[in-house]
Every structure is written in C-alpha cells, then in structure tokens.
Nucleic acid binder design. Structure first.
Lengths: 357, 357
DNA sequence: TTGTAGGCGTTATCAC
DNA sequence: GTGATAACGCCTACAA
C-alpha cells in the first residue's frame, strides 16, 4: 500500500527543503536546473499530486459546487446535473450532490452541512415543502455568508440571486395555441397545486392562450392534482382522478398537462374510456423525457432543455465565483453591494409527435 | 456580508486562547463553567461551525464518498445514487459525483481528480469503453493508494474490491422460465454486446433456462445490439434492427430484452407489425424504471433494485472506511493484507404486468 | 483552569 | 539558489 506522497516526504528523501520542492515542481526559475530536474523526476516517479484539501484550506476555496435538488430519480433534474457536471468539470470544478427529498428540514441540513467550507457556491432548486412554507431564511443566510447561490427552475422572488428558468408561461401558451389551431374546442389543463411557481406560470399561460383566442377559460376544465402527499398508490389515485375528470367533462378534445406523467396518464385513461389519440383527443405535455419519447402514441411536448439550464447555471455560478475572486484581490468589497443579479430565461420549443394532429 | 467566524476570531473577541475556545465548544470539563458559558453563548450568537476543510486536513479524512458512474440521465443509475446518498447522509458522509460518460479517459481523469484528497473512497460502475479495453490499472492504482473502492453492477474480476451486483443470471432464468410456462415456443433474446458483463450474464441465464426445459437455444433468436457507438438516431437504428429481426424470425412469440428500452421498443415494433401483446407475443424486460410502468401495455420486468444496491454499496464502503480507521489506531496495518472482499448479490424478482399473460 | 506548540499539506514571502 | 517561517482553521498533548 503506497500512500500518496507529500512535499515533505520528497524533501526528506532528496535532502532539500519543502519550499525548494514546491518551487521546483511549480517550475519556478528561482531553482537551479539541476535540482528542478531531480525533484521533478522523483515526483513523477512517485506520482506526486498536490493534496486538494490542503490547497482548499490555503486558497480558501474548494473548487467544488454544491447541487441541492429535491429528487434525483427524475429525468429533468438528472439532466440538469449532467449539464452542471459538464461545465463544472470543464472549468475545473467538482460537484457534490445533496437531495432534499422535497423536505424543508433536509434542505436546511444539507445546506448547512455543505456551507461549512465544503463548497464555494450552490446551484439549487427549491423543495416543495419550502415553497409551501415560504420560508427562505436559509437561502438568505447562506448568501449573507458570502456563498453565492444560483437557483434554477423552482425559483422565488424573495431571494436575491442569479436564476435560470425556462419560459414556463410562453411554453404553455405555445402548447395551448397549438391545440387551438388543431381545432380543439374544449381544452383541459392538468396541473399541480399553485404553490409551485412553475405550475402557476404554466396555468397562467394556458389561460392567456385561451383568452387571446377569445375562448372562455372554464375552471371546470382545470384539474389540479395535489401531489404534496406522496402516497404509496400515487399512480392509482392519479388515474382515478383523471378518469373522474374526463367523465364529468366528456366534451374534452384537447389536454395540456404540466408534466410528462400527467400527460401519459391522461392518454392511458383516455384510451381506457374508448377515446383514440389524436383523433378524439389530443395531448401535449411539458418536459421532454423518456416517457414522452417512448409512450404510444409518442407525446407532443414542450421541451424544457434541462441540460442547457444546468450548463447556464454552472457558468453563472463559476463566473460569479471568479468575479468575487478577482474583486477581493483588488479593492475592499462594498459591504452591501447592489449586485446585479442575472435571470436567464431559456426558451422552450414544441416538439411535435404523435399525440397531436 | 457576515463571513463564517473562526475559532481564532472568537478567541480574539473574548480575549482567550484558541485552544480554550476549542475545548469550551467541545464541552471539555477542563474549562471552567464560566468561560464555557461565555464562549458557547458567543459561538451560538455568531453561529460558529467548524470548517470542514480544516477538519478534513487535520483528521486526514474527508467524510465524502466519490461516486463515479457512466451516465446520470438514466433511471437505474440515478436510483443507485439515491440509495448511496440516503445512507451516506445518515452516516455523516457527503457524496461527490463524477460522470465518465462511458469514456475511459474521463473515468481516469475524474478518478485522479478525486483521489487527491477529495474523497475517502469510491463507489463506481465501470464505463463501457473501459470494459472494452479491459484496462483496469487506474482502479488498482487507487486501491493501492489506500483508497477503497466498491463496484456495483458493472464489475470485473480483475479488480480486488467489494462488489454489489444483482443476480443477473438468475433474473434472466426467472424471466425466460416465465415465458416458457406461459407457453411461448420461440423465445427471442435482445441483448447488448458481450463485453458488458451484465449483458453476458443475462444471456447465459437465457440459455440456461431454455436448456433446462430441453429447448434448443437457436442463435438466430438472439439479437445483439451494438450500442457502443452513440449515434444521433440511435432510436431509429434500434427500431429498424428489431424490425428486421422480427421479420426474419416470424415465429417469435416471446421476447426477453436485457433492458427497458429494448423491451419497449420491441413492443412498439411488434405492434407496428400487427402483433398484439400479450396475445401474439409476450415481452419481459430487465430493470424496473419509468418506462416499464408507463408503457402500454405496461411491461413485465425483472426488477433491479437500484436503490438497495446503492444502500448496500454505501454501507459496505463506510464500514470498510471505519474499519481501516480503527485498525490503524491500534496496530500497524499489514502492508499487504489479505483483505476479505465482500460480494453482495441482490436477488431479483419478476414484476408481472400486462405484457405477459 | 488556561495557554503554548506542533502538525495536517501547501504556497508565498522574506532572509540568507 | 536555497531555506526558514508563517499562514489557512482545527485539534490536542503537554506545559504552566
């Protein structure tokens, strides 16, 4: 078992001082050709690599990004991570992942754990419970400690930081307009409860599109699913709710669902009720994941560009970290700087497949 | 901007020494009631938390686990991460995630980056390219540095470490037997190329089940998909291959596919060819993900228990880390210890849904 | 009861 | 050209 070698060990072996070794390895020309050669050869032989932890302590930055998300077994979130990891790696950062599991307390614990020196900044999406409670003190506390945050997708006005979102509103508008153009007369919306900002915006888009076409937005055609309680037989409950909804509104000929699962389930229920897709009823979902691609019929969706969101978020965060860096070198940082926070809005696009005409 | 406070700052403010503060905060009774009170109150007020990096440097352990997987936008892998994170968190560890993207060099780079002090041990699944090259020196090098590795799912005999796998062989046997019991006479196998151990084992299970029932394993009924090249229109290629396969073997009445995607695609193609499922052709997949649950008809699968694998892997790794810990405290560690490495095999089970009778 | 000193691994500054 | 020293933040054996 050959443990990693340290500067000190090299120094002892070669009978020079630690600082000489350090300089030689960094190619400083303070050191003679000879010693440099000797030291570098020895270091290579023993595969010397500086210890990241020691560097972090010295430089007071870890070169790692903390990702805090509600759930990882989820196409959208994992896609975002992939985007973050891609950019992070490219720019010399690592990513450490924490899962809130949609819980307020887990979100806080995770944050505090990582904020104690483990990471330089956060990229996160807020848990449902936090959104419900509307308690954002932990985010602000973190920011006040000088740790920057970039929020994505589930963001909130109450926290001052960089944000990356998709254009949920216009995405919905596009989807619903498509249904209208395709001659749907009774377009239903299947959405979540309003406290998730994303759901609210998508609902607004739905209403806007209808109104633009002078169609009355009948509240009976809106089904709000309460997914805050994560029950065992969630899927069954969902199916039943949708079935009841379809039965009491049997003129529905178009459905816009705010996520894949709702859309796919709606298709399933519709088929069960003897309706064919897209002839009798057309369906559009939001988020372009595996389900959309492989459902039968395949699902027309509003694509959410998760990977791009991740990439943008990572660039935003790293840019800010490096800005802070050079700032603090040059002048004293204003104690309460009116930072200009950036909000990147990613355009959505409609991917047409078989569930619409 | 109130940066995190340090022991030194507290000491200066309260006009005591750093060690007094340290002791007071850890509740040492060397320190007087009075000072302890005062210091603890002050620390609480300023929300003092020890710096993780400093602790890591001092203790020579980071309390973080490195996860290295080929891909994250993938139901199975993300499920495993969830399991690892769950246990890690519970036992006081963080997880740092690296993606190899199925590439040998990215796997190495990521490993080396993390092995330089950032993590205490690895949990990983080998990339396809590495399996193809059969070059495992980086794993052995890491282990020789005293960094333990736990491999899961895609493991390899050439590396001596703890492993967690599912019982791929028996999983296949179960699936194929089910098809046989359900009266399928011509059972096809859709699998990957052999270099992925997992694919090979599943193929062996298929053959074994047939032979047990004295059925000739016709190699024409085995379709091997070459997914090493990740082409753009991968899906289309897959569909075409399967279609051609079905057409040249038009007596197929049962299909066992080594993953969800192949199974779902097979169903799609079958339907396209006018076959109904499960009446004309029955299908079973491997891995129980979203697709299986939500496909129509829903897919009978061999469940892979990703979360459980993650949990077991995390426990295995942490156990070993803590064993090393107490070991090295007590006596000098044998330089080449005949460690007994553990291989946990997780049983699979057949989840019956609509794609079989 | 409190403080000093040393060390974890590294780099930067300054002295020789 | 080389080395000693200090510092990053923490802990602890030992000294006072």
């Amino acid at each position: 078992m050959r443990k990693k070698i340290t500067l000190k060990q090299i120094a002892r072996e070669l009978d020079v001082s630690v600082s000489t070794v350090s300089k030689a390895l960094s190619g400083s020309k303070e050191i003679s050709e000879d010693t440099t050669q000797k030291i570098q050869a020895f270091a290579k032989l023993y595969n010397y690599r500086p210890n990241n932890i020691a560097l972090s302590l010295k430089n007071r930055k870890t070169k790692t990004i903390g990702i805090l998300i509600p759930e990882i077994v989820h196409h959208f979130f994992s896609t975002v991570i992939r985007g973050i990891e891609l950019i992070a790696n490219r720019r010399g950062y690592n990513v450490i992942v924490g899962l809130s599991n949609e819980s307020f307390s887990k979100e806080i614990i995770n944050m505090e754990m990582l904020a104690n020196g483990s990471i330089d900044g956060f990229i996160l999406s807020i848990s449902k419970e936090t959104l419900l409670k509307q308690d954002y003190h932990h985010f602000n506390a973190t920011i006040n400690q000088g740790i920057p945050i970039v929020m994505f997708d589930r963001v909130v006005n109450e926290v001052n930081c960089d944000k990356v979102i998709v254009d949920d509103f216009n995405g919905s508008v596009k989807a619903v307009k498509k249904l209208i153009e395709n001659n749907c007369k009774n377009i239903a919306l299947i959405t979540t409860m309003d406290y998730v900002s994303v759901g609210r915006l998508r609902t607004q888009g739905y209403i806007e599109a209808l109104e633009e076409h002078k169609i009355f937005a009948d509240s009976n055609l809106i089904l709000k699913i309460d997914d805050s309680l994560d029950v065992e037989n969630h899927l069954e409950v969902l199916e039943n709710e949708i079935e009841r909804f379809f039965k009491t509104n049997n003129t529905i000929d178009g459905v816009f669902a705010v996520n894949e699962l709702y859309a796919v389930t709606a298709m399933k229920v519709a088929r069960k009720l003897g309706l064919s897709i897209p002839e009798d009823i057309q369906v559009i979902g939001f988020t372009d994941g595996v389900l959309s691609k492989h459902a039968t019929p395949s699902l027309t969706t509003v694509s959410q560009h998760g990977q791009k969101m991740g990439e943008q978020a990572a660039n935003l965060l790293i840019d800010r970290l490096e800005a802070i860096d050079s700032e603090s070198d040059q002048y004293i940082v204003n104690d309460n700087p009116k930072h200009d926070f950036i909000k990147i809005v990613i355009e959505t696009e409609l991917i047409e497949r078989e569930s619409t005409k």
